[in-house]
Amino acid sequence: MSLVNFLKDSYIEFKDKVEWPKWQELQSSTSVVAIGTVILAALTFGIDTLFSKSIENIYSLIINLIN
C-alpha cells in the first residue's frame, strides 16, 4: 500500500465515515473539560501549599530543637 493510497483512504474515512460531534455538544464538552481543569488545578495548588507549609513548619521545629 502506497502513501498516496493511505492518504486517500484516510481522507475518505474522515470525510464520510467519521461522525463528528455537533457544535453544541463540542461546546458542552469543552466547558466540562475547562471547569474540570480549573478545579483540578485549584486542588493541586491547595495540596501543594499545604505540604509546603507543613514541611516549612517541620524544618522550623527541627532547627529550633537543634539550637
Rank of each mutant, 00 (worst) to 15 (best):
S29A: 10
D9I: 10
V18S: 03
I12Q: 13
V18R: 05
K22Y: 04
S28I: 02
I12S: 09
W23N: 09
V32M: 00
L26E: 07
L7W: 03
W20R: 04
K8Y: 05
F14R: 13
A34G: 00
Q27F: 05
F14E: 09
G36C: 01
Q27S: 06
F6N: 03
T30A: 13
N5L: 13
I39W: 00
S31Y: 08
E19C: 03
W20Q: 00
K22N: 10
S28N: 09
Q27I: 08
K15F: 08
Y11L: 14
E25D: 15
V18Q: 04
L7Y: 03
V32G: 02
S28E: 13
S31V: 12
L7V: 10
I12Y: 07
K17M: 09
Q24T: 06
K15H: 13
D16E: 15
E13P: 04
E25N: 10
I39R: 04
K15R: 14
K8E: 15
Q24C: 01
W23S: 14
D9G: 11
E19V: 05
E13Y: 15
I35D: 11
S31K: 12
Q24N: 06
W23M: 11
V32P: 01
D16L: 09
F6P: 00
Q24F: 04
T30G: 12
D9F: 06
I39V: 15
G36K: 05
D9L: 11
K15C: 08
K8V: 14
V38D: 02
T37Q: 06
S10G: 14
D16S: 12
I35P: 00
Q24H: 07
S31M: 10
K15S: 15
I39H: 01
I35T: 02
S29M: 10
F14I: 08
E13G: 11
E13Q: 14
N5T: 12
Q27G: 00
E19D: 14
L7D: 08
A34T: 13
N5V: 08
L26F: 11
